[in-house]
Amino acid sequence: MKFDILKHKLVPHHEILSQEEVEKLLKTYNIKKEQLPRMLLSDPVAKAIGAKEGDIVKIIRKSPTAGISIAYRLVVKEII
């Protein structure tokens, strides 16, 4: 990797959730993993943070309307 894409100003902060955080998330929204938005395993950021298939990534975005906004993405291998 020639440079750190995580430092680019278009890329927000990504982090992988721990197992218990994942459980808390699914329980709070009463959903299944598959109902979350997705991110490909081959995504440059997924590779940069070392995400595996099935991980859930927490994304902390700078939002023009709320200041900070949190999103979650499930890492999948490919779109069928």
């Binding site: 894409i5 680019h8 278009l10 890329v11 991110m39 995504d43 950021v45 997924a46």
Partner: peptide, 8 residues
């Protein structure tokens, strides 16, 4: 998308 990912 190819260089910086889906969020970018």
């Amino acid at each position: 998308y190819n260089v910086l990912g889906i969020e970018a």
